[in-house]
Amino acid sequence: MGMLRPMEYVGGKFLRWLDEAGELLLLFLQSALWLIRPPFRFRLLMKQMEFVGIGSLGVTILTGAFTGGVFALQSYHGFSLFGAESLVGSTVALALTRELGPVLTSLMVTGRAGSAMAAEVGTMRVTEQIDALYVMAVNPVQYLVVPRILASVAMLPVLTIIADFVGIVGAYVVGVGLLGINHGIFISKIIEYMDFSDISMGLVKAAFFGLILSLVGCFKGFYTSGGAEGVGRATTRAVVLGSVLILASDYVLTAIMF
């Protein structure tokens, strides 16, 4: 028996993980179903778009600006060793649009909005507000989950393109302003090496990450139990699971797309 314990432990963990993956998938399918069934809740969607989009603008701009700036600084040190300072702009621009823009923006929004979704929906669960929706013949997936997912899928690409732009501006300020790279070369190398597809693929990623962070946030909230402590746990897990899934799926998406 003693020999079997570790197997039992691993097996148990695996089964619980499988269970959770199944529930997450089920919530996704339910959301897809309720998305196409009336009534369409336009006002709730607008409210969520404001919360996810406008609400995350500040943190997105800060993240973009500092990431672009520090990336310019670091790559300048590297490139200057073999006299390739002219490539700083295009390197930063490519890294931002393909990877750092969508990933960092999504991670920030996961921390800000994904956690709030888990907390809000979770509180509604433990205070029986979700049951109250059922009792009043309103489907909570349609009422709570669908607007949050739609809003996130729509707003993440918008936030990402802002982060991309601000990041390149940040790199410009550091590269051209502080480190003295030639203005014309900085810009022309970006135009030379960057394709439109670099931006658009990044935005597709962002939309997908928006789906992940909102689905996970709502999922953790929806299945909350155990009062205030449970809500806290749901919030933490939403951020951890959301971030891990974003990073993991980023690899898969990159491998497929580029």
Partner: peptide, 10 residues
């Protein structure tokens, strides 16, 4: 239905 803690939408 009246819930135990009323379950009003806060």
């Amino acid at each position: 239905m009246l819930f135990q803690e009323a379950a009003l939408f806060d």
